[in-house]
């Protein structure tokens, strides 16, 4: 799921990097109290744990295998902001030392597995727990969903960049990760059961529940994600059908290549639907960025005032 360099175009790189950097700033602020308690080795050692645990492969259907992601697992044990930091550390080291995931795609990878994987996953866990659903079931559903959502957003970014066709890649990625997610869910629950026996003190509910600001952040991110997934999906469905028609032999060479840096839509009547989708997605993302930075400013203002 780590996107290499060159798979994303300029606009996707810019948006995802900005979003990840913004949320990283907030999370550094949020965990400052924790970090100033000089718990740095603890966060780091958990990051090293997530990195190592990602080496745990498990077989899925047809000879392929998936591996443990650990985003929701870390969020349940440490709290979402700390878990986001952990995922950022893991992904940065994977990028810089092991060349797993490209530098220009680092923002996107942090967004997919950190922001979506941790926050959206944890939000689901949090709501299920509020509904008095058992910890193991909540953890299972949340970690399954985190993997599926991270895969969905990855497919979406690749499609927006023009690297893969939207419908096919989204379908393939999401359905494949529905299977991987089951593995993730089982592993998370089994791992939590060990911790429940060995260190039950680590399993107390995290501070997220007390802080409404954190909840709002999670909601925003989930809404952003939902909008991003649903809107281009809905509007490009006819486009997908068009593509099938194209594949069947009506394919026209004049279809613009949308993987150059700045796509020139010379034939707007051919592709105007995907253009409209791109513009809509861009506007939506900008709007979310505006809301996000506004939220950040309010948060900062409140902390300064307090």
């Amino acid at each position: 799921m780590h996107i290499p360099n060159g798979f994303l175009d300029a606009k996707t790189i810019a948006v995802t990097s900005a979003a990840s950097a913004g949320i990283l700033t907030v999370s550094l602020k949020k965990t400052k109290a924790y970090l100033e308690d000089k718990q740095i080795p603890l966060i780091s050692v958990v990051a090293a744990f997530v990195f190592a645990a990602q080496m745990l492969n498990f077989p899925i259907a047809a000879g392929t295998s998936g591996h443990f992601l650990g985003a929701v697992f870390a969020a349940i044990l440490l709290g979402p902001w700390e878990a986001f930091l952990v995922m950022t550390l893991v992904l940065s080291i994977q990028c810089f030392v092991f060349q797993d995931g490209g530098l220009t795609a680092l923002g996107a990878n942090i967004f997919n597995m950190g922001v979506v994987g941790v926050f959206a996953g944890f939000l689901i866990y949090f709501f299920l727990r509020r509904l008095k659903i058992k910890l193991s079931i909540s953890a299972f559903i949340a970690s399954w969903a985190s993997v599926v959502m991270a895969a969905g957003i990855t497919a979406l970014e690749l499609a927006i960049s023009g690297t893969t066709p939207l419908i096919q890649s989204l379908t393939a990625m999401v359905s494949f990760h529905c299977l991987i997610g089951l593995g993730e869910g089982f592993i998370t629950v089994a791992a939590l059961s060990v911790i429940f026996m060995a260190r039950p003190d680590l399993l107390k509910e995290k501070a997220f529940s007390k802080k409404i600001t954190g909840l709002v952040a999670g909601l925003l991110i989930t809404a952003f994600f939902a909008a991003l997934v649903l809107s281009p999906f809905a509007s490009s469905l006819p486009d997908g059908l068009e593509k099938v028609a194209h594949n069947l032999g009506f394919i026209s060479k004049e279809a613009p290549s949308n993987f150059s840096v700045i796509s020139d839509y010379q034939f707007p009547w051919v592709k105007n639907k995907s253009l409209a989708t791109s513009i809509a997605a861009g506007v939506g993302v900008l709007a979310v960025l505006a809301v996000g930075s506004g939220f950040f400013l309010v948060l900062r203002g409140r902390e300064d005032g307090a």
Partner: peptide, 28 residues
Amino acid sequence: SRLKHLKTIGHIAGNLFVRSYERGERVY
């Protein structure tokens, strides 16, 4: 079976987490 296999991996992950966490506490 596959499910049991996943359970074992989960126990490894849980054990590993506790070990890592306690190492972190000690180092701190």
